[in-house]
Design a protein around this nucleic acid. Structure first.
Lengths: 140, 140
DNA sequence: CTACATCCTCTAGCGACTAGAGGTACAAGA
DNA sequence: TCTTGTACCTCTAGTCGCTAGAGGATGTAG
């Protein structure tokens, strides 16, 4: 039963020290035991939880969604319908975001290509920004 | 020379009233003349500026980048190299974001497909979140 | 003249952290 | 044992780009 300091937990989980404290503050992570000198001392299970959180954050889940997912994980007999719904909602978000970013990409490419690298009054970048009508797809 | 109220400006530009005031506060938009009763009164040129800002925001440019782009627009004899650089940087950001979101999409699809819609202990969503190693592309 | 929409300023809040001040604890070396 | 240096503690405030709300003044239509 070796003690895991917050720094060690940060190193192993890839979550920064202040962020771990922040997660504790908002109740995403339960408060760990403290050493005699009032320092946080984590258990291996806390590391799993942190890894879970980090992974979910990387996948773009919001803190509130992660809160729900963690509760589900804690109670394995529950139906996984909500986990499924959360993941599906996130998937739809991501798909929309990709579509929208692809439209932006097309727009930006047009701008950059059209730029004659001369003076501002011939610059397509500025021109397109000033006049939305000059966009390839005016609906972004 | 009809007076354009902030509400009218908001309607015509698609930028919300408090946001217009916010842009004035941070110096992105110059402070307009005021009516006798201290209400903002905009000129048509302000509407162009607002449209420019809105368009740039839609394309995901940061406020600071827009500040620079607006300065360039005001001085058409300048080289457009910086406008070009800003747009290129934004394009690279967007491309990276699209790549990363595509990876996330693959991950989320795997999760959602693999979910047997049963109980949490068989749920692929929770399982993958808990174990990064189960990801399709572990490098996101 | 009276509603009522719109405007004004100001402060505080959002999400998800991040930075910094000012102080305490702990591990390693002299 | 002492010292040095790192890591830890709490707390507040800042980031970005707005958004919400309080509390009051102004403008317009009937």
């Amino acid at each position: 039963m070796k003690k895991i300091t917050i720094g060690e937990a940060a190193r192993q989980s890839g979550v920064k020290v202040p962020t771990i404290r922040y997660y504790e503050g908002i109740g995403l992570l339960s408060a760990p035991n403290r050493s005699e000198g009032n320092q946080r001392s984590y258990e291996p299970s806390d590391l799993n939880r942190l890894a879970f959180i980090r992974h979910a954050r990387e996948l773009g889940f919001e803190i509130d969604a992660i809160r729900t997912l963690l509760q589900l994980q804690d109670d394995p007999h529950q139906s996984c319908a909500s986990a499924d719904a959360i993941a599906k909602a996130r998937l739809i978000e991501v798909e929309q975001r990709i579509r929208s970013l692809n439209a932006l990409k097309a727009e930006l490419e047009q701008m950059v290509e059209g730029c004659g690298h001369g003076r501002v009054d011939q610059c397509r970048v500025i021109e397109v920004l000033a006049d939305h009508g000059k966009c390839v797809h005016p609906h972004h």
